[in-house]
């Protein structure tokens, strides 16, 4: 319960901002918060609160795993810092590169394979997996 008190602001924000399937559990002195955020902004806000409560994430007492739910066929923007984003044949950086998409390009999300890799289709018709961190649902 102590951790839930420490991260009370974060839990409240998750509840009030429409995070679906919200799960809050404490196990072996680590608090795990999972769920599906309605937008990237909601997820960013939760991480901002986390960083405020535990500066630079030094505590090691929270597992925050909130994904952004995206409907199949919806568009997402490539939000790399500036470089192109690799499109791979499989979900992993050890998989061969099938193509690239430019910074700020739009792609179609075909499947949220897992919280790290999404299957997408580029405007040029290339299908493959990209690292989800570099996609922002439109």
């Amino acid at each position: 319960m102590a951790l839930q008190e420490k991260y009370a602001e974060l839990i409240t924000a998750a509840k009030t901002s429409g995070v679906q399937n919200l799960q809050v559990r404490e196990q072996n002195n680590v608090l795990y918060i999972d769920g599906s955020a309605p937008s990237g902004a909601t997820k960013d806000n939760l991480w901002s609160i986390y960083n405020k409560i535990d500066p630079d994430f030094r505590g090691g007492d929270l597992g925050l795993n909130v994904n952004v739910s995206t409907a199949t066929g919806s568009k997402a923007k490539v939000t790399t810092e500036s470089s192109n984003l690799n499109v791979r044949k499989g979900p992993g950086t050890d998989q061969p590169i099938a193509g690239k998409v430019a910074h700020n390009d739009m792609v179609t999300v075909l499947n949220q394979t897992n919280s790290q890799w999404w299957l997408i289709k580029t405007d040029k018709g290339v299908e493959g997996y990209v690292y989800a961190q570099y996609l922002t649902p439109a």
Binding site: N28, F57, G60, G63, L64, N65, S115, Y131, Q133
Partner: peptide, 11 residues
Amino acid sequence: ESIQASHPKKV
């Protein structure tokens, strides 16, 4: 975010 998304026990 990326590390936490991989479901570790602790970071």
